[in-house]
């Protein structure tokens, strides 16, 4: 393919400059933007986190007893919320790819991933009205009878988890759908014809064929959940601090950029380890590349 194109191009000798130079020029703007705002800031942060002059004090503080539990909590919540997303995404994407009639499929897919494009600050806020003591859910539960008095759901771990599920499930649906669609349905039928039960079909056919996509979407969403800021601020309570809250307050309230950078790098390192573990598997790597 590539050689084809190259030779095809050499035929067009009338173009004076080298095609490589021309492509380089075209690539320059987007790459420069991504480098200046992605790569360089990471380098600046790395420098910032070990200065002045050269010290690991910021890292020592970030890994100290006060902040480590917050990091642990962020990661744990990330794992739980991601697992919940996958648990729901499996049946929903399976339905979408293999059960839903083809002519409704696109409409159903768009309906299910539309929340991706809505404002997540507003979406989180909507749950305040559902979960508050005087909110819709408590009203329904009390009015319809099952509860004597309203539950305190808002500003807890539960409300935060619901918020994460709400915001990030569409991402998982979208990525999982891509790999669920590639699952050949004839395999499921074959397994059934050979006498496999439901659980067996799921464990031996559906999961092995889709696990790479599931892990890839889990990795992407996990990092986002663990580093989310708006959801814990809106739906979490003062006892549910997460890592991003610490980073933001180090940046804004204490103007301690070195410490904020060190915290970010510790967090980034943990996320990166997850990616590396995922990338060890070639099929997950391919799935990630598709993104």
């Amino acid at each position: 393919m590539a050689t084809d194109r190259r030779s095809g191009f050499e035929r067009g000798r009338w173009w004076p400059s080298s095609p490589r130079v021309r492509d380089g020029l075209i690539a320059f703007l987007p790459v420069a933007l991504a480098t200046c705002l992605g790569v360089v800031p990471l380098a600046v942060m790395a420098y910032e986190s070990v200065s002045p002059p050269i010290t690991l004090a910021n890292y020592a503080e970030a890994l100290g007893g006060v902040y480590l539990p917050v990091l642990g909590r962020s990661l744990l919540i990330g794992v739980v919320a991601t697992a919940a997303c996958l648990l729901i995404a499996y049946p929903v994407t399976y339905w979408l790819a293999h059960v839903c009639p083809a002519r409704y499929r696109l409409a159903a897919l768009i309906t299910l991933v539309l929340p991706l494009w809505l404002n997540y600050v507003v979406l989180n806020y909507a749950w305040v009205w559902i979960l508050a003591r005087g909110g819709v859910l408590n009203y329904l539960l009390v009015a319809l009878g099952p509860l004597g008095e309203p539950l305190s759901l808002l500003y807890t771990h539960t409300s935060m988890l619901i918020g994460f599920l709400y915001i990030y499930l569409p991402y998982v649906l979208l990525t999982m759908y891509a790999s669920m669609e590639r699952l050949d349905y004839r395999l499921v039928e074959a397994a059934r014809d050979l006498g496999a039960g439901d659980l067996r079909v799921f464990v031996d056919v559906v999961v092995p064929r889709t696990i790479a996509g599931a892990l890839a979407s889990a990795l992407i969403v996990y990092a986002r959940i663990a580093g989310a800021y708006a959801t814990p601020e809106i739906l979490g309570g003062p006892r549910n601090q997460m890592i991003s809250r610490l980073i933001v307050s180090a940046f804004y309230e204490f103007a301690d950029w070195g410490f904020a950078s060190a915290l970010s790098f510790v967090f980034l390192a943990v996320v990166f380890v997850g990616f590396c573990l995922g990338a060890l598997s070639g099929s997950v790597r391919n799935e990630l590349k598709r993104w």
Partner: peptide, 15 residues
């Protein structure tokens, strides 16, 4: 897509 947004945002802010 891969680096958590809070880290990138802080990086750009510091930069």
């Amino acid at each position: 897509l891969f680096v958590p947004t809070v880290v990138l945002a802080l990086g750009i802010g510091v930069f």
